[in-house]
């Protein structure tokens, strides 16, 4: 299994490099810890977009270029539900901001699921015989989503203004203040990674998905309605992306640039990990998240202000140049 060895070595080298750069760049263990937490935080957000992208691509051969848009919509819905005014105003109904945040996240997930369902059933389904048009179509959907968001919420970015318990709590370590909320998101991402892995390994639907990645036709010939599984998986993928946007919103706010940024970053993740490989996506998310965090540190006070935004794309280009099948991908 030299391929796996090579992948492991590559992962260790990349991680080592990132940690090295970060350690050189930080003045104290606390600084370093902050970078690490920030990297893991971004990695988990990326995973929430990339997991759907990857599983859907593996199973259905559809690269959903609108996946980032679901993240963006999730962020807007959560923001809107949390704050006074806007489309949904819950401040009167649910005065407790913590509870309202939970409701806001649920609203975002439901919106993502509904929009995902509509996209698959209404628009993608007629096009399974024309795959190149599916790609074109999801690109079109991402444009429409962006325009709709601009139309509903205008182009002005929203930054999260309501300060509430979860978001504002910190803990101290090595003389640095760490955000509990970030840690919480990282923990939740970890739980989700494991849950999805278990689902894929153990549940019947997981077996169907893994079988479908190998040979869709045969799955159908066994009497399984693959189209229904497609719809389910696609809907779940979009719901998870919207969930990511919702839990990211307290930090990133809601803006029209989120969709494209997260799409490109998570495409970088998926290609880095190996298209369609679940473990690759999980590892790739963490690596790209860390890389962005390190780049953000390095860029502070230098002329490379663009570095963090270019980092994922640089990684993507690099991977495509060196090993297009990615870390865990089988070359096909």
């Amino acid at each position: 299994m030299t391929g796996q060895r090579a992948s492991l070595i590559a992962i260790v080298v990349i991680l080592g490099g990132l940690v090295g750069v970060s350690a050189l760049n930080s003045s104290s263990p606390g600084d370093f810890g902050i970078t690490l937490l920030s990297g893991l935080f971004q990695g988990m957000l990326l995973f929430l977009v990339a997991s759907g992208l990857s599983i859907v691509f593996g199973l259905m051969d559809v690269l959903n270029l609108a996946q980032g848009s679901y993240f963006m919509v999730g962020a807007y819905v959560a923001y809107d539900a949390q704050h006074a005014g806007g489309l949904i105003d819950l401040t009167a109904v649910i005065p407790d901001p913590n509870l309202r945040f939970i409701i806001a996240v649920i609203a975002a997930v439901l919106a993502g699921a509904l929009l995902g369902y509509l996209l698959e059933r209404g628009l993608l389904r007629p096009l399974y015989s024309r795959p190149i048009f599916q790609l074109v179509l999801t690109f079109g959907v991402s444009l429409v989503a962006l325009e709709l968001v601009k139309f509903i919420w205008t182009t002005t970015p929203y930054s999260w203004t309501e300060l509430f318990g979860v978001r504002e709590s910190f803990f101290e370590l090595f003389g640095q203040r760490f955000s509990t909320y970030r840690l919480f998101v990282v923990g939740m991402g970890g739980v989700l990674i494991v849950t999805i892995a278990l689902l894929l390994q153990r549940s019947r639907i997981g077996i169907i998905i893994r079988a479908g990645v190998e040979d869709r036709e045969m799955v159908q010939a066994l009497g399984i309605n693959v189209r229904a599984v497609f719809t389910l998986v696609f809907t779940l993928g979009c719901a998870i992306a919207a969930f990511g946007g919702a839990i990211a919103a307290p930090f990133l706010g809601a803006s029209t640039t989120l969709g494209n940024a997260f799409l490109l970053q998570s495409i970088a993740v998926v290609v880095l990990g190996g298209m369609g490989s679940y473990s690759g996506t999980a590892v790739g998310s963490v690596l790209v998240g860390l890389a962005i965090a390190v780049a953000q540190d390095v860029a502070i006070g230098t002329d490379f202000a663009a570095l963090p935004s270019i980092t994922p794309m640089l990684l993507l280009v690099l991977v495509l140049l060196l090993r297009p099948s990615g870390l865990f991908g089988n070359s096909r």
Binding site: V213, D215, E217, Q220, I224
Partner: peptide, 24 residues
């Protein structure tokens, strides 16, 4: 009818080149 519906009526298919799932 769609393939899965046909299979569900009680027809089993053993295709050319076996088509078992290698990763399962």
């Amino acid at each position: 009818k769609s393939t899965h519906a046909i299979a569900q009526m009680g027809i089993g298919y053993v295709p050319e080149h076996r088509a078992i799932f290698k990763g399962l």
